[in-house]
Design a protein around this nucleic acid. Structure first.
Lengths: 202, 202
DNA sequence: AGAATAACGATACGTTGCGTATCGTTCAGG
DNA sequence: CCTGAACGATACGCAACGTATCGTTATTCT
């Protein structure tokens, strides 16, 4: 047991980074459909074989890129104001989706994510779960401060906040401007307030 | 000018229906990516050439199916209550997306819709514009009744209502249950009420 | 330093599916 | 019944996927 993966190994990290980088760049302007492994190989200065040694398919490669991006997501600082914190959370997502390449990558992956593939499950477990947890944390903090009423449906709130963002990105085509985060939060927040001054059901 | 397309034509409608039907069925379980024109041809009992005589590419065929489905969308009846009307609107969309095959088709088309393709533009002009118009109609009616305040951002409201639905369908993976429509509307409606009892900015 | 060995590059291959071209066949309308 | 449009069948070129093979680097251990 003195050596496992010894002798001539360990030149992986550089090539891996090159492949991921090339994939990210290409994926930012074409979508998974048009992405070609040959293209990635050429741009990364790497043999096609090398890519298939690390990822079993084109989709797995794309997913790796997505995960790599998501892990750079920042968590929200304490601001002592639920509205500001929620806006910051959404703002972060919007910035990532809009300014960096992740929006394009997401768009390219949309089809795969919608299917019940391994890629979809991985995305849900990594990205969605992470955001859901963040929403839960912020809401709980708001409840503790008395800003938010108890018993709020976290999952629904999460969908209400992030849904419009992705809807714009994917379907409606409206721009992801700066003020969007605040407007979404201001639209959703009244339903989360303690007093229940809302028009009730039936 | 006595005859244009005279002599031996007019057997198109049956084959066209067969092709669209076969596409719809296949698209309901595989996504555009896996959809093959050869498969459609085989299932429709039609030569591949015949398909390419009518649609220039696989994507155009898929779009045709989507449009065909959307045109079966029902408009919302007058209910004299904005909440009920908005719920009915959302309920219709959810039912179409959930129970019929359109949800699967949408999922399959997601990638193409996200790209700036002809397909995306067509979808926006047909589906999104249609729904936006419907939202505007309902909101305006609510304003006339005094249930909704003036100056509401129609586009944002549209995104707030439909965004969560599609977000669930595509990404979060939560089910599209019966009560979803009401819960979304109840969350959004307070922000549309006249009095502006909302916590203001800053 | 030098050998052992994992990772890599280059290339060729089989396969699938797209979109096109060609030609014979069917079926409605005059 | 005869003409011509729409259809079926088939073959083709092409691009990209994913695999296999083999010679070449580069790294680590002795």
């Amino acid at each position: 047991m003195t050596s496992t993966a010894g002798r001539g190994s360990a030149r992986g990290s550089r090539t891996e980074a090159a492949i991921l980088g090339a994939t990210r760049e290409l994926l930012s302007k074409c979508g998974v459909r048009e992405l070609t492994v040959e293209g990635v190989a050429a741009r990364a200065g790497v043999a096609k074989t090398t890519i298939y040694r690390r990822w079993r398919s084109k989709d797995e490669l794309a997913l790796a890129v997505l995960i790599d991006m998501v892990q750079t997501m920042v968590s929200v600082p304490e601001l002592e104001d639920t509205r500001a914190e929620l806006i910051a959370l959404l703002q972060g997502a919007i910035r990532i989706l809009g300014k960096t390449l992740m929006g394009s990558v997401m768009r390219g992956l949309a089809s795969e994510l919608a299917t019940d593939s391994d890629l979809a499950r991985a995305f849900r477990e990594l990205v969605v779960a992470l955001r859901l947890g963040e929403v839960e944390r912020l809401i709980q903090r708001g409840v503790d401060r008395g800003e938010i009423r108890q018993g709020v449906d976290i999952s629904l709130t999460h969908d209400l906040l992030f849904g419009p963002v992705y809807y714009r990105l994917f379907l409606s085509g409206e721009p992801l401007d700066r003020k969007l985060a605040a407007r979404i939060v201001d639209a959703v927040l009244p339903a989360l307030r303690p007093v229940t001054r809302t028009a009730d059901a039936r």
